[in-house]
């Protein structure tokens, strides 16, 4: 029996609860994070604090779940294949179907949304065949309508997202 675990809605952090250093860091390093041997020391220099201070801040941001991660953001469909999938699932079966969907390692985001197509998830796999295989399995197992919505063209230039301006 698959069990559905739902991420509880956690308390949000107001921008005013962030320190000045945290704000400057979060806004300035969404791109061009240093590719140098000691990146946090370089950031510390640029922000006029010590490396220890930066590492403590990162630890705190992680613990407060404000920081998802630091690292490369990959372009979709370049290393491997991905697609967005929407399913129309009757409300009373949503939990069960969501648990089935979540049981695939290839599913990394899964949201319940307010629409006839109420289950939306991203499938990411090493190749396109594996994606097709999973979608076919879900069709066979559930019988519900599934939209396979791979991206055909990306228009935005991802430079991160201004957190406050």
């Amino acid at each position: 029996m698959l069990k559905l675990t739902i991420q509880k809605e956690t308390n949000q952090v107001a921008v005013s609860e962030l320190t000045d250093l945290e704000r400057r860091f979060l806004n300035a390093y969404q791109h061009e994070f240093p590719l140098s041997p000691m990146p946090y020391a370089d950031i510390a220099d640029e922000l006029g604090v010590t490396e220890t201070k930066i590492l403590e801040m990162l630890d705190s941001l992680s613990r407060r779940k404000i920081l998802s991660r630091i690292g490369p953001v990959f372009t979709p469909n370049r290393a491997g294949a991905s697609t967005l999938v929407a399913m129309a699932v009757p409300a009373e079966q949503l939990e069960e179907v969501a648990a089935l969907v979540n049981s695939y390692d290839e599913v990394n985001h899964n949201y319940e949304r307010l629409n006839d197509f109420n289950l939306w998830f991203v499938l990411t796999a090493s190749d396109r065949n594996r994606i097709e295989e999973i979608i076919q399995e879900l069709r066979d197992k559930t019988g519900f309508q599934i939209l396979n919505l791979p991206l055909e063209q990306a228009y935005h230039i991802d430079l991160g997202f201004p957190l406050w301006c």
Binding site: Q30, I66, L67, I70, G71, V73, T75, A79, G160, F161
Partner: peptide, 10 residues
């Protein structure tokens, strides 16, 4: 292949 390198805030 890599779009950017940096902080990914929540």
């Amino acid at each position: 292949l890599i779009r950017r390198i940096g902080v990914v805030p929540n």
